Amino acid sequence: MSDNFSELATWAAPLLAKLNGSARRQLMRELAKGLRKRQSDRIKAQQNVDGSAYVPRKPQRLIRSKQGRIKQTLFNKLTKASHLKIAITDGSVAVGFDGRTARIARVHQLGLRDKVSRYRNEYDYPKRELLGFSDDDKTWARDFLIDHLTR
């Protein structure tokens, strides 16, 4: 599948053009919220876009172990709406990260080399696809548009 929704966009463009501005923006907002929820759920499940599991985190050296400590999964906080942003215009929807969060997500998304912290050495991060569209996402978006436009 291609990484964009060009086929879906060409199919839906004439139908969306018939909607007035506020109805189109409302449709785009609902679509963006649904896509953000799907991306967030996939990140929480620790899965790449193709359904494979993330490469596990490198074992951490602990100076002392803390009893009763709950270990967090990778990208636990990135799934929150405060980090996973939505950008909406009349003709497009974007779901992604911004600022420092975007830099961290980009390193993991592309599997780049980066410093672990300010005073530590660089590390080659394994590729973990945080954002992307699967065939299931494309099908969901098509069904969502059909349901919304037939109402």
Rank of each mutant, 00 (worst) to 15 (best):
R29Q: 15
K127N: 09
E129V: 09
S65D: 08
G91R: 08
A9K: 14
N48Q: 09
F75G: 05
A13S: 10
I146R: 03
V95M: 08
L110D: 08
G51D: 11
S82E: 14
D136M: 09
F133L: 15
R106G: 12
L8T: 14
L130I: 10
L27H: 04
R118K: 14
L35Y: 01
K127P: 01
N48T: 09
F133E: 04
K85L: 15
N76E: 15
A17W: 02
A9H: 05
A94S: 15
R118I: 11
P56V: 11
D137W: 02
D114W: 05
E122F: 10
Q67I: 14
I86G: 02
L74F: 02
N121R: 12
W11T: 06
R103I: 05
L16P: 00
T79Y: 02
R64Y: 09
T10Q: 15
Y125Q: 07
A102L: 12
A13E: 10
F75I: 10
D137Q: 06
G99W: 03
N121Q: 12
S65V: 12
R100W: 04
L62P: 00
R64Q: 10
A12V: 06
A17G: 05
W140K: 06
G68R: 09
G91N: 15
R24C: 10
H108T: 07
V55D: 09
E122Q: 11
S40P: 01
D137A: 13
S92H: 02
G99M: 10
G91E: 14
R38K: 12
D90N: 15
Q39K: 05
L31W: 04
G51Y: 11
M28I: 01
V93M: 09
Y123E: 14
N121G: 15
Q47N: 08
L112W: 02
L74I: 03
L78D: 04
D90C: 04
S65A: 11
G68H: 07
K33M: 12
L84H: 03
A23C: 03
V95Y: 05
F133R: 03
D136H: 04
Q60D: 05
E129L: 06
N48K: 08
R57M: 10
D90T: 11
K115W: 02
R103V: 07
A17F: 05
K85T: 13
Q60F: 03
A12Y: 00
D50E: 12
